[in-house]
Design a protein around this nucleic acid. Structure first.
Lengths: 162, 162
DNA sequence: GTCTAAATACTCGGATACCCGCTGTCCGAGTGGTCCGGG
DNA sequence: CCCGGACCACTCGGACAGCGGGTATCCGAGTATTTAGAC
């Protein structure tokens, strides 16, 4: 059970767009070159972020991707759900109803499976922790360690006004 | 990103052994029949529980599996780690160091990646929630809804003293 | 009747194929910019 | 010089292969039981 590699790509790409702070779209080729990622596959991931309403995409010559919302309103949970889909980590196949044990347990299936409930509690804690952290929080934490990330990204993308 | 099916199998199997409450080992064929699971594959999963110290296995004619510890001391985290391995959900490939952005960010890599840290916080909340729930807790919750599970399991396994 | 020893049936354990989903890639649809010609 | 239209280059978007890990299975190693035979 490991997360898709695209989650890391998505977060870093969103962060770069946040640091850029520009209202102009950035093509996926530039974004991919920023971290040496396969351009076409990154595009595929960003499309899912568009579907989730985190990014906007503009076609055409001067097209590209840009943040659909300010970084303060984008949570890590939204990013993870956009890339991974909103399915739960633990899949309950209701095996308690099957086999010799399940056949004799009639009448106890009116409530949710206790295993599913317990796993769901843990998963909820995870999702809450993800929802409490916005892209701006991560950005601020990175800035605390490397204060010059804004200019670094602008320079790397060749869009610095300097 | 979805959890292995074996996790559900492992928890239910451990619960059945807890309800059985017997000091005698139960063969995997009986455990598999309890919930209509593929015998050989369930055996593979239980082997991992043995390696993790949650189960004991006895070979021979009267062999089988039995709980290595009381249900009160077995946490859901241990079960998940035993089946899924202890790798983290989020894999940090340190892409921040790569590409045009990474090349210009020299000097900012003395601390952990902020993305990794944030994801790690959420994952820690998940693991803590799993660690706080013991097998006995889940057992008690299931008993609250279906109070007769102990006898049900003993009957289903053909080991009832009655 | 009792002890011994071999045969046996049953168990776990690891080595071996299969299949779905993540990974990676390609080409087509669409749009804005650009250039050329005409007025 | 200004305007209009066609060409073009660049973008995103969805459709098409490749591979790794979860899924499923089979066969071999080992042990307690059983049973037959000898004393």
């Amino acid at each position: 059970m490991r997360m898709s590699r695209g989650v890391e790509w998505a977060v870093h790409t969103l962060l770069n767009l946040a640091w850029l702070g520009s209202g102009e779209p950035v093509p996926v080729a530039t974004l991919a070159a920023g971290h040496d990622l396969p351009r076409a596959y990154l595009n595929k991931q960003l499309q899912q972020l568009v579907k989730a309403g985190l990014l906007e995409s503009l076609p055409g010559t001067r097209g590209g991707f840009l943040l659909a919302r300010p970084a303060e309103s984008i949570t890590l949970l939204e990013v993870v759900d956009a890339i991974e889909g909103e399915s739960t980590l633990f899949r309950c196949a209701e095996i308690r109803q099957c086999g010799t044990v399940g056949a004799r347990s009639v009448g106890g299936f009116t409530t949710d499976c206790a295993v599913k409930t317990s796993m769901g509690r843990a998963e909820l804690a995870w999702r809450n922790a993800l929802a409490e952290q916005t892209l701006a929080d991560v950005q601020a934490e990175a800035d605390a360690h490397a204060p010059d990330m804004g200019r670094t990204v602008r320079t790397a993308f060749g869009l610095d006004r300097q």
